[in-house]
Design a protein around this nucleic acid. Structure first.
Length: 578
RNA sequence: CGGGGAGUGGCGCAGUCCGGUUAGCGCGCAGCGUUCGGGACGCUGAGGUCGGAGGUUCAAAUCCUCUCUCCCCGACCA
């Protein structure tokens, strides 16, 4: 350790907020180079190498073929799929000296589809699973959370190629199981949730979400295990539609009530008796006028789906007035030049109080169909804590999660665009059916730190710890050094990974650094232990030590390691129904 | 991009409002000595274009203009 590149720090850098970020920097595992760009120091690199190896083993186990595709792609390939045009500035575009457009790939659907069209011609060659570990660079609008969200990272991305949907389902299921095995082996606590397909396109997507209060995603989870979904797509059971005769529309003065809560308080009615208007400007330039019951919130992802708008930005006050509405007092009654998107809650609730489109006034007894028409009626409501599970009706719980893996059924979106076809037994050409599956390697490592730590430092799961053992020599007596040296050699010879703290530091310093770095087993050799021809052994997860005869250390460590690894071995599948 | 904050030896900070000698403090680092099982102590020492560029001034870390970078909160994703 005296020559380890990457020293430990007593204090965390001021700009690190997340525990994983602070600890990994303090432990000398990573160093920042720029915003969202990190160097993996030797200790950190050992962790990600182990994560990779676990992923590799499980991918190979489902028949994955490892390969390596380039990071720099000709832009023309991305023009063929349409993503060159469709994706914003997070896709880095470059020109080479010949003024040819290039992109830094952030996934490899295009290349796989391109390869497939030249390499695959017959159904006899299918199915196929290919994967690689490759650097991705995504010019994120904002990287955050230290290592959880970075701009440059290593991703395992794999792709299935199949003849039909049934084949895709098999490949998808294989990944689903492989992912469970990987994350279990890494010692992570996680859940699978239904997710939005986003820019990947395709028909089905699920995310593997590690539980963490620092997660960026909000998950809705049925306590009975019947349902789990990312809030982006989460549905819930609505109240029964109310049946009531439409009452006559009436104007009501409601001064100083620009918010739903103020309005409900002023009129002495529940918020669910009001209609809320939310205004967006779509990427197409259309004005999107979303209407939802006052007690609910608009889910922008759902709204995007419903309107087919890729981008939604909040509308400005001028834009709102331009369609005949009034910020704070808006309703769809009488607006023009806007796409009116109505949530099911509005359809199912008669006689709502809605804005009058003039400051300080609302309308009572507004009804869809009589007082205004909808261009789209859809589910655009955001689910929240306590909302009812769409399967069993139980109140759902909310958790935050870090997305550590994502699996997609892509279908033929890319293969059709690129003309990647195969011939079936009858000689008919069909587009190949694709799936794509990603895991962020560094993110998985950082997530493990988020989940496995205490006030002293990291408590790595054995499977991905930088080393199995931290060996400390306490004291500078030559006899101690000699005994520790010998122990180090014996352990190494037995295939045990040892981080040997041979520095001339005091015991306290070594203990603290060992705790910070977080290898699962700590061995200490000192004058005291040597007096009995022993070493002290302590688990990172324990406050109690055992003393082991020097010639029994290797056996004892191997026994403990085997036990720890066995505990991480996947047993039954841990899935959650969709 | 919008909003908020910060750039001063390797790390953490003070000094900036109200310009004024050689820019400080803690940790870390080097040497010597004393220590030696939960971040020791003493002495000595090395290390700083005060993010960068212009400007104001007799004088700028400090005031003005421009600019770069980083962090945090909101729309994206492994």
């Amino acid at each position: 350790m005296s020559h380890l590149f990457g020293r430990t720090l007593r204090e965390a850098p001021a700009d690190a907020e997340l525990p994983s970020h602070q600890l990994m920097v303090r432990a000398g595992m990573v160093r920042p180079l720029g915003a969202g760009i990190y160097t993996l120091m030797p200790l950190g690199y050992r962790v990600t190498a182990k994560v990779e190896q676990i992923v590799r083993e499980e991918m190979d186990a489902i028949g994955g073929q490892e390969m390596l595709m380039p990071v720099v792609h000709p832009a023309d390939l991305w023009r063929e799929s349409g993503r060159f045009q469709a994706i914003g500035p997070e896709l880095v575009r470059l020109k080479d000296r010949g003024e040819r457009d290039l992109v830094l790939a952030f996934t490899h659907e295009e290349v796989v589809a391109d390869l497939a069209r030249s390499e695959i011609s017959s159904y006899r060659q299918l199915p196929m699973i290919v994967y690689h570990f490759q650097t991705k660079f995504r010019d994120e609008p904002r990287s955050r959370g230290g290592l959880i969200r970075v701009r440059e990272f290593t991703m395992k991305d794999s792709y299935t190629l199949d003849a039909d949907e049934a084949g895709l389902e098999v490949g998808y299921r294989k990944h689903w199981h492989a992912y469970h095995r990987m994350f279990t082996r890494m010692g992570l606590r996680y859940i699978v949730v239904g997710a939005d397909v986003g820019m990947m396109g395709g028909s089905l997507s699920e995310e593997f979400m590690a539980f963490s209060p620092h997660g960026e995603d909000v998950l809705l989870i049925c306590p009975n295990g019947d349902y789990a979904a990312n809030r982006e797509v989460a549905t819930f059971i609505r109240d029964e539609p109310l049946a009531a005769e439409p009452l006559p529309l009436e104007d009501v003065a409601t001064p100083q009530t620009p918010t739903i809560q103020a309005l409900a308080d002023y009129l002495g009615i529940p918020t669910k008796q009001t209609a809320k208007a939310v205004f967006f400007k779509g990427g197409s330039g259309k004005f999107i006028f979303a209407v939802i019951r006052g007690d609910l919130d608009v889910n922008e992802t759902k709204l995007r789906q419903a309107t087919g708008e890729g981008d939604l930005l909040p509308a400005s006050a001028e834009e709102i007035k331009a369609v005949g509405a009034e910020p704070g007092y808006g309703s769809p009654v009488g607006v023009h030049d806007a796409v009116i998107v109505v949530d099911e809650s509005i359809r199912d609730t008669p006689n709502l109080v809605a804005g009058a489109n003039k400051p300080g006034y609302h309308l009572r007894n507004v009804n869809l169909g009589r007082d205004f028409e909808a261009d789209i009626v859809a589910d655009i409501a955001a689910a929240a804590e306590g909302y009812r599970c769409p399967v069993c009706g139980a109140p759902m719980q909310v958790e935050r999660g870090i997305e550590i893996g994502n699996i997609f059924k892509l279908g033929t979106r890319y293969t059709e665009a690129l003309g990647s076809t195969y011939l079936d037994a009858e000689g008919q050409a069909h587009p190949i059916v694709m799936g794509s599956y990603g895991i962020g390697v560094g993110r998985a490592a950082a997530t493990a730190v988020e989940q496995c730590r205490d006030e002293r430092g990291i408590r790595w799961p054995v499977s991905i710890a930088p080393f199995h053992v931290s060996l400390l020599s306490l004291g500078n007596d030559p006899a101690i050094t000699e005994a520790a040296d010998r122990l180090c050699e014996e352990l190494s010879a037995a295939g045990i990974e040892v981080l040997y703290d041979d520095r001339e530091d005091r015991a306290g310093v070594k203990f603290n650094d060992a705790d910070l770095i977080g290898n699962p087993i700590r061995l200490s050799v000192s004058k005291r232990t040597l007096a009995n021809n022993q070493a002290e052994l302590r688990l990172r997860t324990s406050d109690e030590s055992e003393f082991v005869a020097l010639d029994g250390v290797v056996d004892r460590v191997q026994e403990l390691l085997a036990g720890m690894l066995a505990a991480l071995e996947p047993k039954a599948e841990v899935g959650v129904a969709r």
